[in-house]
């Protein structure tokens, strides 16, 4: 699939939205190899005992999912930098929405900057960030 052309992109362009799979099954597949098999990620009850509303998606998975969103939009692109702020937990078994928009273009090195967000079902921002992407 061909990605967007740098020349055609404009500040304000939206990337296709993405609904990531953050089911418990998926999280358990992730945490083992990542060395993050803690109860707060894999067990709702254990997470509640820690004072959390339920099991939470590891922040590093949220960051990885957002990088994946960029690649689905622009196959072959190279992410030079991705900076994510975990403002509030994304809950396992919830239905978050990942969004991204172009916020800057640098003609000198043909990179774009994008905003990244993960919101929950109430539209509240849980994760936000930015990335610089070479197209």
């Amino acid at each position: 699939m061909a990605g967007p052309s740098f020349d055609d992109l404009e500040v304000g362009d939206e990337l296709p939205e993405f609904k990531p799979d953050v089911s418990m099954e998926r999280i358990r597949l992730f945490v083992g190899p990542s060395g993050m098999a803690a109860g707060r990620f894999t067990d709702h009850e254990a997470a509640r005992k820690e004072g959390l509303p339920g099991a939470i998606v590891p922040g590093i998975l949220s960051a990885g999912i957002l990088a994946g969103l960029i690649h689905r939009w622009a196959p072959g692109s190279r992410i030079r930098q991705i900076d994510t702020v975990f403002r509030a937990p994304v809950l396992v078994d919830s239905h978050p929405l990942c969004r991204s928009v172009v916020t800057d273009k640098d003609e000198s090195d043909r990179t774009v900057e994008v905003d990244l967000t993960i919101t929950n079902e109430q539209g509240e921002t849980r994760v936000m960030g930015t990335a610089r992407v070479e197209l």
Partner: peptide
Amino acid sequence: EQLRVFAVSCGEEEPRF
């Protein structure tokens, strides 16, 4: 394999990952 498993978990679809 370590690299592949991580990429799949993140929903990457491109062969390079």
